[in-house]
Every structure is written in structure tokens, then in C-alpha cells.
């Protein structure tokens, strides 16, 4: 983790499955803190040279070479419909695995690892579970901060998966 640009966050590598489930990796998009279940997180890296893949939505930034493997990158900022932001030294890529599919999520800045026992979780109000907030599972509070807990599956799921002709 001495790589420049990668914050010194220790992922609990020896944690049990149960512990992982109740632990989130938090990151910033703008001023908002989001949480990602640690079960899906493999590692955090800095931004690598990206090869663009034409014909894909803007939030699919392209592919990177992760130790010989080809990993697609999704810009979470763009995926959430927020304006594009130039990548800087804080920009991180969270490598996630979901159903054997490895995807890198580009985030503004990785914040911390948070255990859910130490936070206060509340379910989302019902009206917001439709559409706009389908990426989220719950909101939790730790200290003064609110964390939007994300659902990895909906983020990586295709928006128009039925449009394959």
C-alpha cells in the first residue's frame, strides 16, 4: 500500500465472511460518503493508464491492465449522473468482484473501513427505493457523517440489459 495515491487503508484480510459482510469501505464522490460492502472489494489501486472502449456509455471509462488481467472501469461519479471531474492524486480505483466479474470503480477518494456495529443503520424511506436510489441499500451514521450504503449488484448491473438485440 505504499503506492502513491493509494490511501493507507488496511483491508481486514483475515476477517471472516460474517465480519466482511458487516464491514464497508467508504469513499467520497464530491462531499457525499458512500459505503461499499467489503465482501465485494478486492483491493484499492491508483488510476492506471486507461484504454478506452468505443461504443460504451460514458461511465464505462475503458479497461486497465491489472497485473496481466483486463479489468473494466466504471466511473461512479458519471454512473450517478454527476459532472465529470478530472482525475487527481486522490482518485482511486476500487477493484470489486461480483459474480466472478471483476470491475474497477473509479471514485473521488477512498475514505475508510467502517464496521457496521459501530454505526447506526436506518433503512431507506420507501419512496426513494424506486429508480433514482436503486443503487442504495441503506443509510448509516458514523459520528457526524452519513454513509450511503451501496448495492454492488445494481451499480454493476446494466441499465438497459434488456436492450440486447
Amino acid at each position: 500500500m505504499s503506492e502513491p495515491g493509494v490511501p493507507n487503508i488496511e483491508l481486514p484480510l483475515d476477517a471472516t465472511e460474517e465480519e466482511l459482510k458487516s464491514t464497508s469501505l467508504t469513499f467520497y464522490i464530491g462531499d457525499t460518503i458512500y459505503g461499499l460492502p467489503l465482501t465485494n472489494v478486492v483491493e484499492i489501486i491508483s488510476v492506471q493508464p486507461i484504454a478506452k472502449v468505443p461504443g460504451t456509455p460514458a461511465y464505462v471509462k475503458g479497461v486497465i491492465n491489472l497485473r496481466g488481467g483486463i479489468v473494466p472501469l466504471v466511473d461512479v461519479r458519471l454512473k450517478f449522473g454527476q459532472p465529470e471531474k478530472e482525475y487527481d492524486e486522490f482518485t482511486n480505483v476500487i477493484i470489486t468482484v461480483l459474480n466472478d466479474m471483476t470491475v474497477g470503480l473509479v471514485v473521488d477518494r477512498v475514505a475508510n473501513v467502517v464496521r457496521s456495529e459501530s454505526v447506526d443503520i436506518s433503512q431507506l424511506p420507501e419512496f426513494s427505493t424506486v429508480n433514482t436510489n436503486r443503487y442504495m441499500t441503506s443509510v448509516s451514521r458514523t459520528g457526524d457523517n452519513l454513509i450511503m450504503n451501496l448495492n454492488c449488484e445494481t451499480i454493476l448491473e446494466d441499465d438497459n440489459i434488456l436492450n440486447l438485440a
Partner: peptide
């Protein structure tokens, strides 16, 4: 290509 791109 990673299977991620199948949908595109």
C-alpha cells in the same frame, strides 16, 4: 473482453 462488456 471481460464479461462485463457482453451487454454492450
Amino acid at each position: 473482453f471481460p464479461s462485463f462488456f457482453n451487454r454492450y
